[in-house]
Design a protein around this nucleic acid. Structure first.
Lengths: 208, 208
DNA sequence: CCATCAGTGAACGGTACGTTCTCTGTCCGC
DNA sequence: GCGGACAGAGAACGTACCGTTCACTGATGG
């Protein structure tokens, strides 16, 4: 918590630069995020809390969305590798549970706010989606490819809409009902929707 | 277009009341919605456009979300009855297409904005969801019940999460990718996800 | 050691909020 | 058909935050 600088006037006192300044700003951003939520997070408040100037913020990030994304990225560690339990069901459930848990945190608060803010701008929405969902989709694809290799599901299951819809349903539940997401919701998605769809996947070529 | 009142000063001129006032405000609201979109729709602008006062607006609706919902409700006619083609696939596709088409209109613009604005407030989100999705869920349930009666799918398919997820996927696509929603997206949802899930639905009792 | 760079805090004009004020048209009971 | 209550119009207010610009001065590198 480097934000404990207190009432230091950085016009006279130690004037931060480089990493120290970034850290102070990111700390202030995350603290504001936790305290008042994304929606009421204001550049003015972050600047004041970090004892930095708004000009310094706007020099680095054009708006609060970029600032928050940077702060989360700065905080976030390495992504976990894809689960590999030998069971498709367990792999998928693990992946979804991991995502659900992530949403029940500062990350989720930010994700909800970022979604809300960018929903009105399709271009930014696409950009945001690329940053947030791409990782999960890659892991899901990995899981499915292993299941295909094991012979658990047909190769036709490797299709974008079959890869993306389970995480999409989790996201939707989060957006509508909030976090935490009950585990039975995840089990329903996997057992009643995803697995039947994957098992019955048919290659369009078979229909010709 | 009752909004064509022009430069009438309603302090002196005919002062509207009751239905006339409501209509003028709703017309102005929908016109603003169409012109600048939900996000830039401001109470100030609506009031000015309707030659009404902000006080009159706030007396009736506490915020723009309520105002827009009321305006849409005022405009909206009777909901169509559930499709009944004799084919589950056609019924569901018709329902989803209808929903997709509805989203590609003023209603969709408003829905996106309302979602964005209320995403940060779980309580309001729930309220909003009740107003927007309940109708569709009822129709979907009706369709599925007919399919069960015909013997097309097992009775176990009548479960909330199986009823709700197809419209949810449509909504999610709309939120992320915008409108119009390509028809093949709807066909993928129905053919590759919904129908396999419904056909394979198993009663939990069968597993005991 | 000094010129340049860069961060701070303050102030600005702008937009929209939600509230409150005065003035006055409209309606209802009598 | 009259007069008071009710309620709408428009303007003004204080608040919040936006994104920008300013003068000042600490830090940095040649």
């Amino acid at each position: 918590m480097a934000a404990a600088a207190g009432a230091v006037d950085h016009r006279k006192g130690p004037r931060r630069r480089g990493e120290a300044l970034y850290s102070a700003i990111f700390d202030a951003t995350l603290a504001e995020l936790a305290e008042v939520g994304y929606w009421r997070l204001a550049m003015e408040r972050v600047a004041a809390r970090a004892h930095a100037s708004k000009a310094s913020l706007y020099k680095r990030w054009p708006n609060r969305a970029e600032l928050v994304i940077a702060a989360l990225h700065h905080q976030g560690g390495e992504p976990d590798p894809a689960p590999d339990t030998g069971s498709l069901r367990e792999d998928v459930l693990t992946l979804l549970r991991r995502g659900a848990q992530r949403l029940d945190s500062l990350f989720g608060e930010a994700a909800r706010g970022l979604m809300a803010e960018n929903l009105t701008n399709p271009e930014r929405t696409a950009n945001l989606r690329a940053n947030m969902f791409t990782g999960r989709n890659r892991l899901m694809r990995e899981i499915l490819e292993r299941a295909v290799a094991r012979g658990d599901i047909p190769e036709a299951a490797i299709k974008p809409h079959l890869i993306e819809f389970a995480p999409a349903l989790v996201d939707h539940h989060f957006l509508i009902h909030g976090a935490p997401i009950p585990d039975h919701v995840l089990r329903h998605i996997v057992d009643d929707i995803l697995l039947p769809a994957l098992t019955n996947a048919t290659d369009p070529a078979d229909l010709e």
